[in-house]
Design a protein around this nucleic acid. Structure first.
Length: 557
RNA sequence: GCGCCCGUAGCUCAGCCGGACAGAGCGACGGAUUUCUAAUCCGUUGGCCGCAGGUUCGAAUCCUGCCGGGCGCGCCA
């Protein structure tokens, strides 16, 4: 496993820098320079460090560069070091180090890119958590894709990750759902319906009512109102919950645990939590309600936990739920929320503090909205009127691969412009296929091998003459391969799956360029073996990278 | 009014833990196929990085203000 090539180089630079500046350990960031002549990786540490020492940046850079060249650890990885500009240190990677990275990729296979962080964390990532009052929408789809990808990426980055869905199956919204379904049921039987104020108008409510009518006839017409409402609420929420699970499963999103708010609250956890907060002096009573003193902990104002009518707000059980998550031993909680929840961030942070946890152990991530387009046409949506595009419809229209890739491709905080027409298009303007095509092409090369080179057998990995790889396109490709672990590292740190997409698209470009210019299977067995190995390494990275996004890597397209 | 997010090429977006002349795809125009899948490749075209200040040797990147867009400010969830 070991550290990524780039991290090892950064470490070597830091060592050289420390030796020259006397003790200080600067954080070295190695970046890919825009211009080819500036090497494969460059750093400006010397310029930053020189200032503190009152030295000329160029002089320090030259001394660090000289020491770096002598560094035995670096020698195998770097071909040469140059000092340029005001004091940039430019590194030119040695082909030997890159070939070793290709060999490592082949050895590690599905584990390539897996990291071993100094301090692995136990992370719980909660996402989607949509109320079971309607089918998952496109907005939930994006949260599902981002959350599941993040879970995979963080796990690949060496953390212990669990995923969880908090099923909000209690409270006013569920009661409204039940009353809405009951109204549709009555209407279907020719009675006065009366969807309540703020009720659910979507067609699925009528379908659920119709199902009950078919199965149970009109027996609920005469039942006591409370009993009927409770039955319809539970039945409808259950049905919708099943649909949600089914859709997520098909979307390749897996949860380690589903927590039912109703069951959770029934266990007394909410009261226990309130007691703890009260004992800590964070709770007081006013106007007949119970309040949480969140303003003193950084929120805009204090928040109600228990309403005057005795019922808890959404917030109270949610604090208890987060308390429970911490108590289950997680170091870090990540919550994915929609943009309508950003006002919720400060109060939950306050709650985390009141629970005696460090602020950094809780990371809310706001997943921005998605606006759907079909070509130029913007698809309007209104949840209240029950008019929205569901995740199911998107999956059916563009497929799981394209949907997941599109959702993961933009930065999480940016508004997503999702064009269904583009996602469905099977052409080169669709980035999913651009990346998947690499995998299919490599598979095709291997499939044609017996026919194109009869009798050729691929030697074991350590017997392949990787030193035959030296063309510019091949070296570029090797650099991209070697960069995959860094992409995993950065995506995990930033909690942004789009880093994986960017990396894969760059790798794909490098591969297609190499493929166009150099034939893999030739009369030269050594060269053929080396190029097959390179192609296989590319395939490995594509498969692993797409795997982190929950996107398939097809053998044929 | 207060708070959060966004503002980069005609379009969709990267880049944003500060670095060397700002990137990709699409679009438009022109090329490449006796070779392992043309869902590919090559070239041309195209940008006061919203505006104005500040910090810095150096700012698309950090800070402040403004403008524009989205969202939130319930004893709703």
């Amino acid at each position: 496993m070991g550290a990524a090539l780039r991290s090892r180089l950064a470490e070597a630079v830091a060592r050289a820098c420390r030796a020259e500046t006397g003790g200080d350990a600067p954080t070295v960031s190695l970046e890919k320079p825009r211009q080819a002549g500036h090497g494969d990786l460059a750093t400006g540490v010397a310029m930053a460090a020189a200032k503190a020492l009152g030295e000329r940046p160029g002089d320090l850079a030259r001394r660090v560069a000289a020491r770096l060249s002598e560094d035995a650890a670096a020698r195998g990885l770097i071909e040469r070091v140059e000092v340029a500009g005001a004091g940039f240190i430019n590194l030119f990677l040695a082909a030997g180090g890159l070939r070793e990275e290709v060999a490592r990729c082949l050895r590690e296979g599905v584990d390539y890119g897996r990291l071993a962080p100094a301090r692995p964390e136990r992370i719980l990532i909660e996402f989607v958590s949509a109320n079971p009052t309607g089918p998952l929408t496109v907005a939930h789809g994006r949260q599902a894709a981002v959350g599941d990808s993040l879970a995979r990426i963080l796990a690949h980055a060496g953390h212990r990750v669990s995923t969880e869905y908090y099923l909000n199956d209690a409270g006013r919204q569920i009661r409204l759902l039940g009353l809405s379904a009951l109204a549709r049921y009555r209407e279907a039987l020719g009675r006065e319906g009366g969807i309540p104020e703020g009720g659910y108008l979507g067609g699925y409510v009528g379908e659920i009512a119709e199902e009950i009518r078919r199965r149970e006839g009109d027996r609920w017409l005469g039942a006591p109102a409370d009993a009927a409402a409770a039955f319809f609420a539970e039945h409808a929420a259950g049905r919708i919950g099943e649909g949600i699970r089914r859709d997520l499963e098909e979307f390749r999103v897996r949860f380690d645990r589903w927590t039912s708010e109703r069951e959770f609250a029934a266990g007394g956890a909410v009261e226990e939590c309130l007691r703890e907060l009260r004992d800590g002096g964070f709770v007081y009573e006013k106007d007949g309600a119970v309040w949480f003193g969140s303003e003193a902990l950084g929120d805009d104002k204090d928040r109600v936990l228990v309403k005057r009518d005795g019922e808890t707000t959404y917030f109270a059980p949610d604090i208890a739920y987060h308390r429970d998550k911490f108590r289950r031993g997680f170091d870090r909680l990540i919550d994915l929320w929609g943009p309508d929840h950003h006002g919720y961030v400060a109060r939950m942070r306050a709650a985390v503090k009141a629970l005696g946890r460090e602020e950094r152990s809780f990371t809310p991530v706001i997943v921005q909205l998605t606006t759907l387009f079909r070509g130029k046409e913007r698809l309007r949506m209104s949840t209240r009127a029950g008019e929205f595009i569901t995740l199911r419809q998107v999956m059916d229209e563009v497929g799981v691969d394209a949907a997941r890739y599109f959702f993961a491709r933009m930065r999480t905080g940016s508004h997503l412009h999702f064009d269904l027409e583009l996602a469905r298009r099977r052409s080169n303007d669709n980035p999913v296929y651009y990346v998947q095509y690499v995998h299919a092409r490599v598979c095709s090369i291997f499939a044609r091998l017996p026919e194109k080179a009869p009798g050729f057998t691929l030697p074991p990995t350590d017997g392949i003459p990787l030193d035959r790889l030296g063309e510019r396109e091949e070296l570029d490709l090797m650099k991209r391969i070697a960069d995959f672990p860094t992409a995993v590292e950065r995506s995990a740190e930033a909690l942004e799956p789009n880093g994986i997409c960017n990396h894969l698209e760059e790798l794909a470009t490098a591969f297609h360029q190499c493929y166009t210019r150099h034939t893999v299977i030739s009369d030269d067995p050594g060269l053929t073996a080396a190029r097959l190995a390179l192609a296989d390494a590319v395939r490995t990275v594509v498969r692993n990278g797409l795997g982190l996004l929950g996107v398939s890597a097809p053998a044929r397209m």
